[in-house]
Lab assay of single mutants.
Amino acid sequence: TFEVERIVRKKIVHGNTSYLVKWKNYSSKDNTWETEDDIRTKYGDLVDDFEK
């Protein structure tokens, strides 16, 4: 199971928000862009903290 360590960046393309996710126990080269809906479902607190 993958676990988010932190959110690195945010991008908005054509009105759709995605977050660059750093995965726990993986290197930064393994970071992936994930949709806001996918990340918010399980890691809403991390998204809220990133947006502060």
Results as ranks from 00 to 15, higher is better:
40 R>I: 09
22 K>F: 05
6 R>G: 07
38 D>E: 13
47 V>I: 13
33 W>G: 00
30 D>N: 14
19 Y>H: 00
3 E>P: 04
42 K>R: 12
22 K>C: 04
17 T>S: 05
29 K>F: 10
15 G>V: 01
34 E>Q: 09
39 I>C: 08
2 F>R: 15
3 E>M: 08
20 L>K: 02
52 K>P: 03
3 E>Q: 10
5 E>N: 01
27 S>L: 10
2 F>S: 11
49 D>M: 14
3 E>I: 11
4 V>Y: 03
26 Y>L: 15
37 D>E: 14
38 D>Y: 15
31 N>D: 08
44 G>I: 09
21 V>E: 00
24 K>G: 04
19 Y>S: 00
47 V>S: 02
31 N>F: 13
34 E>A: 07
43 Y>H: 07
11 K>M: 10
1 T>Q: 13
3 E>L: 07
17 T>E: 03
33 W>C: 05
12 I>R: 07
7 I>Y: 00
16 N>S: 12
15 G>L: 04
47 V>E: 02
5 E>D: 07
24 K>M: 08
24 K>F: 07
6 R>K: 15
3 E>A: 06
52 K>W: 07
21 V>M: 02
8 V>Y: 03
21 V>T: 02
19 Y>C: 02
43 Y>K: 02
36 E>C: 05
1 T>Y: 13
41 T>F: 11
21 V>P: 02
39 I>P: 09
34 E>K: 06
17 T>P: 05
5 E>W: 04
49 D>K: 11
4 V>N: 00
17 T>K: 06
52 K>Y: 07
42 K>M: 13
11 K>C: 14
9 R>S: 13
6 R>M: 14
46 L>F: 07
42 K>D: 11
46 L>D: 03
46 L>N: 03
51 E>I: 05
8 V>D: 02
34 E>F: 15
10 K>E: 00
34 E>T: 05
37 D>F: 12
17 T>H: 04
7 I>V: 06
45 D>W: 14
27 S>C: 09
50 F>I: 02
19 Y>M: 02
38 D>I: 11
8 V>P: 04
23 W>R: 02
49 D>R: 10
1 T>C: 15
16 N>D: 08
31 N>I: 08
21 V>D: 00
31 N>H: 09
7 I>Q: 00
9 R>P: 00
34 E>M: 15
27 S>R: 06
50 F>C: 03
10 K>S: 06
3 E>F: 06
45 D>Y: 14
41 T>D: 12
12 I>P: 01
8 V>A: 02
51 E>R: 03
16 N>H: 12
4 V>H: 01
36 E>Y: 09
15 G>I: 03
43 Y>I: 04
20 L>Y: 08
8 V>M: 09
22 K>Y: 04
35 T>E: 10
51 E>A: 04
11 K>S: 06
1 T>G: 14
37 D>Q: 13
41 T>L: 14
21 V>W: 01
11 K>D: 04
45 D>Q: 13
45 D>R: 11
47 V>Q: 03
35 T>F: 09
46 L>W: 07
50 F>L: 02
29 K>M: 12
1 T>R: 14
48 D>A: 12
9 R>W: 09
25 N>R: 06
47 V>P: 03
44 G>H: 09
38 D>A: 14
8 V>W: 04
48 D>N: 12
18 S>C: 15
14 H>F: 11
14 H>A: 13
27 S>G: 11
52 K>N: 10
16 N>L: 15
45 D>H: 14
3 E>R: 05
28 S>D: 14
47 V>K: 02
44 G>S: 14
3 E>T: 07
47 V>C: 03
33 W>T: 00
40 R>T: 05
50 F>T: 01
37 D>Y: 13
30 D>Q: 14
34 E>H: 10
46 L>P: 02
4 V>S: 01
8 V>L: 14
30 D>A: 14
31 N>M: 15
10 K>W: 04
6 R>N: 06
43 Y>P: 01
45 D>P: 11
41 T>C: 11
6 R>Q: 13
14 H>G: 13
2 F>I: 12
16 N>Y: 11
43 Y>W: 15
6 R>W: 10
21 V>G: 00
21 V>C: 03
23 W>K: 01
23 W>Y: 08
45 D>M: 10
44 G>E: 08
27 S>W: 06
22 K>G: 02
7 I>K: 00
29 K>Y: 10
33 W>R: 00
41 T>N: 11
28 S>H: 14
52 K>L: 11
29 K>C: 13
7 I>G: 00
35 T>Y: 08
45 D>F: 14
22 K>T: 04
11 K>T: 07
39 I>Y: 01
5 E>C: 08
39 I>R: 00
25 N>W: 09
13 V>F: 08
14 H>D: 15
37 D>T: 11
34 E>W: 11
7 I>D: 00
29 K>I: 09
15 G>Q: 04
10 K>L: 05
34 E>N: 03
35 T>A: 12
5 E>A: 04
3 E>W: 06
28 S>Y: 13
30 D>C: 15
28 S>I: 08
1 T>I: 13
15 G>H: 07
9 R>E: 10
37 D>I: 10
30 D>M: 15
10 K>D: 01
38 D>W: 15
26 Y>M: 15
49 D>H: 10
3 E>H: 06
23 W>C: 02
36 E>I: 06
14 H>T: 06
35 T>N: 11
44 G>M: 10
28 S>A: 11
43 Y>Q: 03
20 L>S: 00
28 S>E: 14
6 R>V: 10
2 F>N: 12
48 D>V: 06
32 T>E: 01
7 I>E: 01
33 W>E: 01
49 D>C: 09
27 S>A: 09
43 Y>A: 11
